[in-house]
Structure formats: C-alpha cells, structure tokens
Design a protein around this nucleic acid. Structure first.
Lengths: 146, 146
DNA sequence: TTAGTTGCAAAGGCTTTGCACGCGC
DNA sequence: GCGCGTGCAAAGCCTTTGCAACTAA
C-alpha cells in the first residue's frame, strides 16, 4: 500500500479555507486524506482512534463546514450513505460498484471537457458537472456470472 | 402548460414490464407521467387525491418494484430526498438548481456519447453513466446577486 | 384458487439541531 | 476575553420491514 503522500499540513489547509483550526477538524482532514471516499461514520471511527472523546456529531459538523468552504466534496451513491473526498480542485469523475459500493476516481474523458457543458443550459448558471459511472468492479463482476 | 402527451395506457406499461397491475401502481405511473422528477412524497400526495386509501408505503413499494423492473429511474440530488422519473430509455442528463431544487432534463452533448465511457474503466463493467449539472436556475440566479 | 399487493404500524439508518462547557484566536 | 466549536442528547427525515387481509390473474 503506497504512502499516498500524506497531506503536508492539515491545519494549514483548514486555516487557508478561512476556518478555525481544532484537533477534531485536523483529524477529519487527515482521515479523509488517508482514505478518500470515506463515509461520515468511517471517518468518525478513524478520528476516534486518535481523539477518543470526539463525537460523531463533531465529525458531521466539521464535514459540513468543509463542504461549505469547498475543502471537501460530498458524493452520494444512491442507496448508500454519503461519502466525502478531499480533492476538489481537479475535474475527476467517479466509478461506483453497485455490488460492493467501491468508489474509484477517473479522469475526465477529454481535455476540452465535453462533460462540463450541458447541451442546453436552459438559463441555468452551471458551476459543477458531476459524472458517475455505475457498474460492477472487476471482483464483483467476476464472482457474479449473471 | 402543455398536455405533455399523457401516457397512453399506464396498465399496459406496467404489464409489459412483467408486473401485476393494480390501482395504486397505475396511479403512481400516471402521477410520474404528469410530473417527472417527483419525490416519493409528492407522488403519494397526487395518488391519494384519487385513491384516498393508498398508503405512502405502497407508493414506495411500487416505486421500488418499478425501479427494479427498469420502468422508473431514481435520481438522488445530494441533500434532497430521492426523485423518480419515468423515462429510462433515452440517454439524458439532469440540470439541478441548488437553491430551489428544480430539475430539468437535458440531452447528452454528443451523439457518440462521450460521457458514457470513462477514461479508464479499471476493470469495471459499466452499465450507466449519470451526469448531473449543478447550478442555479434562471429565477434563483436572478434573485440572488451574490 | 393462489401468489402477489395493499394497508397499517413500527423500526431503522443517516443526519441535523439545541444547549452548556471549553478552546482557538 | 470573545466567539466559535465541541460534546452530549434528542429529534428529524426518508425509507424499509413485518404481518394480516385483500385482489389480480
């Protein structure tokens, strides 16, 4: 398992988003950095390991604030609890396994980003295009020969 | 408001999906046909107008069965209750207003469907690509000058 | 007839809210 | 010191589940 280049300074990331730095918030950022596409509960489990007195509500609270500040992005696979991911700047999409719920990042198909422009914006001011590919991962597709 | 060509025969649509036809199911299909992108509760409200004894659970039940049978598609805008739509055959995407929650259908950008193929499928067997454009509708963008 | 559906009720999961104490700045 | 953030608790919303009576085929 790669060291996936841990975040340099979680506190700095939080501060530069204009937010106050606390232990729990730092722990949430680190947990999210270590494991992208984690659910609120998974993040909570990880945070508690280091800060046992942390509450699940604080994690939700931190996540809500991060999403608001644009530090974190929330994705919600239909039928599964919401997932959170740290990286927000690049334009990537998601590949989700219907069977096991695994989530993978994939880059946008073309560099002129065809997916980012709707055929008719109907007067809408569009800021984000979210693309989700649904299917089965190699493992699940292999075990289910249906 | 156009008559949006009401569904010819709701019962037939249900039957050809291999399902048993009941009053509530027909009412759900009609409600969905009259108002695409409706939530389970909205559908329930409409169904109750004609079939007062119908329960919300039956609506959920019918919707679940329809989704399973491929008659209905479920979309879930982050932070909002799940929405349901009848048309499933064509390849269209959604434009969602963050402010008022309005949902519009938009066609896929290109006819060779660039959005349907991830840049790297990582061994996944992809069956559906879901594209959601987030933004603000003309009305909301106009009232909020932020 | 017979299996599939309904209606009623209750539980369940995920998430948000309210309030007093404590900590970052 | 001031105000935001935390922790604890409880409520909230949306959705699913269980079971007896009913209805489509």
């Amino acid at each position: 398992m790669p060291a996936h280049s841990p975040i340099a300074d979680a506190g700095e990331a939080i501060r530069s988003a204009g937010l106050r730095v606390t232990d729990s918030r730092r722990a949430v950022v680190i947990a999210l950095d270590e494991r992208p596409h984690a659910s609120a509960d998974e993040i909570f489990q990880r945070v508690v390991e280091h800060l046992p007195q942390t509450s699940l509500q604080s994690v939700y609270n931190a996540l809500a604030v991060f999403v608001e500040a644009g530090l974190v992005r929330r994705i919600e696979p239909a039928g599964h609890p919401g997932l959170f991911e740290l990286r927000v700047s690049d334009n990537h999409h998601h590949l989700i396994c219907r069977s096991c719920g695994a989530v993978e990042d994939v880059d946008c198909v073309a560099d002129d980003r065809p997916c980012l422009v709707p055929s008719d914006s109907l007067g809408y001011v569009v800021d984000v295009a979210e693309v989700t590919f649904w299917g089965q991962c190699a493992t699940c597709a292999g075990s289910a020969l249906a």
